[in-house]
Amino acid sequence: MSTQTEVSARGITWLRALTAQDGVIQGAPATVRVAEAALGDEPASFIAVVPDPHNRFPRARNGEVGLEEGWTLARQVRKIIAAGKDGVRRPIIALVDVSSQAYGRREELLGVHLACAAAADAYASARLAGHPVIALLVGKAMSGAFLAHGYQANRLLALDSPEVMVHAMGKQAAARVTRRSVADLEKLGERIAPMAYDIRAYAKLGLLHQLIEGVDADAPGAADVQRVREALLAAIADTRAGPSDLSSRLSSPAAHATRAASIEVRRRLAEQWDVA
């Protein structure tokens, strides 16, 4: 049993650093924060999921994406889509520091799978509507929580920091499920890139648009913030110059090396799709 989740302040730290706001939404849970701020010469929306020790749903107090988080993300992103319908599709920046989806009996009963799907749907819909959607990984990007908040982005950026990690399951749980020790799991991660937790190993998979190096992730100074802004602006420009799908995740040299099978499957599938 692992109820001691370390509570991370990375989400709120970066929301404040990039927008000078706390992003509290009237009438919504305090775990979902949205702030509008200038990025370059246009307004952008920044969205974070943050811990709240008083959250109404006890299983989503440590930065998890739970029922209300998923549906609130969906509502907020859809508001941005509605506002941009007849004008400029403003960029949406998802600040990602999510420890997991909420694990609970009540969560399952009330459909946490649908809540997370609703958030993923909204982000994907924003992307398809022409909003540049950028995920900035500043902390944990774990499993179903990342699928709900960030993984539908046009471009994935990450801070090069030891606490920034992506994985399908927490280390302890993954060790139990695969009947390995945590030490064995870590050793395996060194040899097999997709099994690793740290962001540098993740960067080798070719999914990341940019790994932002040399930034203080916990206490960013002005230069750090400036560097991240520039990376976001470059990612937005790159997004606007390309298609609205996720094909860029298969185009980098790293993807050609590590996700060769993903590319090969698609190539041969296209050959067989129509009867010769």
């Binding site: 993923a120 992506v166 994985h167 399908a168 399951m169 993954a174 099994m195 998979l205 799908d245």
Partner: peptide, 18 residues
Amino acid sequence: VRLQEANLGLAVIAEIHA
């Protein structure tokens, strides 16, 4: 996700959602 392919499984599930 197939845990032996962890991050590539998670990534492709996001592509299925998309």
